[in-house]
Design a binder for these strands. Sequence first.
DNA 1: TTCAAAAACTGATAAAACTCATATTTTCCG
DNA 2: CGGAAAATATGAGTTTTATCAGTTTTTGAA
Lengths: 233, 233
Amino acid sequence: MKPQAPHCQSCQFKDSSLFKQCHLHELEELNESKCFNSYKKGQVIFHEGNRPLGIFCVYSGKVKVSRMGSDGKEQIIRLAKKGDTLGYRSLIDNTKYTASAIALDETEVCFIPAAEFNKLVDENVKVSTDLMKMLARALGDTQDKLIHLAMKPVRERLAEALLLLKSTYQEEGKNPFSISISREDLSSIVGTAKETVIRFLSEFKEDGIITTHGSEITILNPEKLVKISSMYD
Amino acid sequence: MKPQAPHCQSCQFKDSSLFKQCHLHELEELNESKCFNSYKKGQVIFHEGNRPLGIFCVYSGKVKVSRMGSDGKEQIIRLAKKGDTLGYRSLIDNTKYTASAIALDETEVCFIPAAEFNKLVDENVKVSTDLMKMLARALGDTQDKLIHLAMKPVRERLAEALLLLKSTYQEEGKNPFSISISREDLSSIVGTAKETVIRFLSEFKEDGIITTHGSEITILNPEKLVKISSMYD
DNA sequence: TTCAAAAACTGATAAAACTCATATTTTCCG
DNA sequence: CGGAAAATATGAGTTTTATCAGTTTTTGAA
């Protein structure tokens, strides 16, 4: 039997999530309206083109947010981890999802219906202020990605992507950092072909920066990756 | 003598700007604290790395928001026109500007100090809601740019850039659309080298899609550009 | 444990875009 | 108006990255 999500009032993320500034009675109501779900690796949490019906809070696992090109090529826009909020942009902008969210691991997510989310945002200024800052930060991050995609060659972007994975998913005290990720997904983060990613990974291996065992990548020397990623900054 | 900005209460954009939902007394206060400025072509409105002290409302002219790479290559993140708001992301996120705003034409801008802006956002929920939507839209737009940069070849991105210029800057009834823009700036929108832009522009000219006179580009056949830009959508 | 499918890897070649060099045109300042 | 500086335009050659084809390794289920 899988562990169910705890009550919102005792959630691991109650002091760090978007709802960290909620009152107890708000958390109580949130808890009543939320809906807990599990997703296996590869399962779709929400799909490009659909109408958003609420937002998602990741409780455990890893999620990619990505868009599919007509040629079947995928571009990953964001990586989400436990504690992160998903799908809020479309809801606020009142548009269909422009990207899909897909579990990269066994992932647990709470769904919060639009009505409840909107109520909370309307009634609690602190929540709406935090939401605004979250949007501003996301915009800044996306602009950074845009700039790097435009200005940096693949080798540097790959180094950066590995550092992003590390900074996003490294658990406290787990050193060195390891992650299991397909070369396909990695290439969709970097914005290049998977063969190109593989070639540069081989180079990084030769330089002792990483090691791999199957799809598992271990980062031995993050400092070198920092150097590579900011070669021309 | 240059025309000064009118009072905020009679501003051309009082019903379409970020402040469209303000009360009269709020517009009055806004008017008191605002500061009107003119910029010649090429002049910097705010500069990458500086701390934001307020936000900017474009009253007339054209503005590019761009970041400079260490190799001197520029990437344009956004094009702003009259009625647009500039510099709000950094202010909300409480970070230094990550890009610069530069006048592309003779441009007039109102500066609104951070204190006044924050007060308005805090006191008027409608303003903060609109601001939130503006951020959400900007995030969506930037994600689109990212996807296109990753997935579309230069020819398609150039077609898209020309359509962006048209949809942003075409004045009511002025047909066909013409704009004076350096190949350098155009390449900084597309994210490519200026020679590459020039080559594809020549191709578009041969196909009768555009004509040029010096740096002036006239779009004769926007439909063909739409087709080219979405070749693989 | 075995075996088949999937994924990682490697090599060869092709395509896209960049750089550099240079010619031509436009701009604009005196 | 003339001429220098700047910008546009074009060509050749190189670099980067993508594509395709094939081999090896890993993975996961029977």
